[in-house]
């Protein structure tokens, strides 16, 4: 009787311990994500398995071109996978559904040369603490062009590499 009891106690103890360690790893170091949906094609396809890391996102130091996982601003239960196109201070110019990002220096020269043109276009700065994200498949992606810049606090992790399918395993 006593041995059964102590055995159950052991099992509970060890499963608790491992559950907690797994939680910490997935929450603070990195985790695996299964992609779903067409918005990141041709870079990522549905059912790709990605390895993501959560260490650099803690410093809130976004870089243009990184692929990130964030909580969807329109539905807090859903996650989205997009590419960072603009960081705070960048100027976003929307032109027939395609986006040009301009760093602050570029913006000045470009603005001077295309002053007339830009007036007709939608054109805004990415505010402090926010980023502009877009899917690679610009025709089929709900992203910042639809809901505007998203706060950096929603960014959960950065995609490091694709693990599955094995043939297409690569760094991203």
């Amino acid at each position: 009787m006593v041995s059964i009891f102590s055995r159950v106690k052991d099992i509970v103890k060890y499963s608790m311990m491992y559950a907690c360690m797994t939680h910490c790893t997935f929450e603070y170091i990195g985790d695996f994500v299964v992609c779903n949906g067409p918005s990141m094609e041709p870079t990522l396809h549905s059912k790709n398995i990605l390895l993501t890391e959560r260490i650099t996102t803690r410093f809130h130091n976004p870089r243009r071109g990184d692929i990130i996982i964030a909580i969807s601003p329109t539905d807090p239960k859903q996650y989205i996978c997009k590419r960072i196109v603009g960081i705070p201070g960048d100027r976003i110019v929307l032109k027939n559904n395609t986006t040009d990002t301009k760093t602050e220096e570029d913006a000045l020269t470009a603005a001077a040369s295309k002053k007339q043109k830009l007036k007709e276009l939608q054109d805004e700065y990415v505010p402090r603490g926010c980023i502009w994200i877009e899917g690679d498949n610009s025709e089929n992606s709900a992203d910042s062009r639809y809901y505007g810049p998203i706060p950096l606090g929603l960014v959960k992790s950065r995609v490091v590499c694709r693990l599955w399918p094995i043939k297409e395993m690569c760094m991203l």
Partner: peptide, 8 residues
Amino acid sequence: LISPKDPS
């Protein structure tokens, strides 16, 4: 909540 202006 995390401040939308300053994520830290």
